[in-house]
Amino acid sequence: MFSKSDNLIGQANSFLEILEQISQLAPLNKPVLVIGERGTGKELIAARLHYLSQRWEQNYVKLNCAALNDNLLESELFGYESGAFTGASKRKEGRFEYAHNGTLFLDELANTSALIQEKLLRVIEYGEFERVGGTRTVKVDVRLIAATNEDLPSLAEQGEFRADLLDRLAFDVVTIPPLRERREDIMTLAEHFAINMTRELSHEFFSGFSKKATQTLLDYEWPGNIRELKNVVERAVYRNSPSIPVHDIVIDPFESKYRPKQRIKAVSNVETKDNQEPPAIANNETATIDKRSKPNDDEITTSADIQEPKPNFSFPIDLKSASQSFEIDLIQQALADSQFNQKKTAEKLSLTYHQLRGYLKKYNLLENSEN
Rank of each mutant, 00 (worst) to 15 (best):
M1E: 15
F2D: 07
S5W: 01
L8D: 14
N13W: 14
I18A: 05
L19R: 06
E20W: 11
I35K: 03
G36P: 00
G39N: 07
G41V: 04
K42P: 14
I45R: 08
H50V: 01
Y51R: 07
Y51A: 15
L52C: 08
L52F: 15
R55E: 10
W56R: 11
Q58Y: 13
V61A: 06
L63R: 06
C65A: 07
A66E: 04
A67P: 05
A67L: 03
L68D: 02
D70C: 08
L72G: 13
E76T: 03
L77R: 05
S82F: 07
A84T: 05
A84K: 07
S89P: 12
S89F: 14
R95W: 07
R95V: 10
E97C: 09
Y98R: 13
Y98W: 14
A99M: 13
T103G: 05
F105V: 00
E108P: 01
A110N: 03
A114E: 07
I116S: 01
E118Q: 11
K119L: 13
L121F: 14
V123F: 01
E128G: 04
F129K: 04
F129S: 00
V132Q: 05
V132A: 02
K139A: 11
D141I: 01
V142N: 01
R143P: 00
I145E: 03
D151E: 14
S154I: 02
L155P: 11
A156T: 04
E157N: 03
Q158C: 06
L165M: 03
L169Q: 01
F171K: 03
V173E: 14
V173K: 10
V173L: 04
I176F: 11
E181A: 11
I186E: 02
F193T: 04
A194D: 05
M197F: 06
M197C: 13
E200Y: 06
S202I: 12
H203I: 05
H203N: 12
F206D: 09
K212V: 14
A213F: 00
L217T: 10
L217K: 09
D219L: 13
W222R: 00
P223G: 08
I226M: 13
I226P: 10
R227D: 07
R227H: 03
E228T: 04
K230L: 08
N231V: 00
P242I: 04
V246Q: 07
H247F: 00
D248T: 10
I249C: 06
I249F: 11
V250G: 07
E255T: 15
S256A: 09
Y258W: 10
R259V: 15
Q262A: 13
V267Q: 12
N269I: 14
E271Y: 08
D274G: 10
D274C: 03
Q276N: 11
P278S: 15
P278V: 02
P279S: 07
S293K: 10
N296Y: 12
D298E: 12
T301C: 09
S303G: 08
E308C: 12
P309H: 06
P311R: 11
N312D: 14
S314T: 15
S314W: 01
F315D: 08
K320A: 08
S321T: 09
A322G: 12
S325F: 15
S325D: 15
S325V: 04
E327I: 09
D337S: 13
D337C: 02
Q342G: 11
T345L: 00
A346T: 08
S350I: 13
Y353I: 13
Y353C: 04
H354P: 08
H354I: 10
Q355N: 09
G358A: 04
Y363E: 04
L365Q: 05
E367G: 12
E367N: 14
N368I: 10
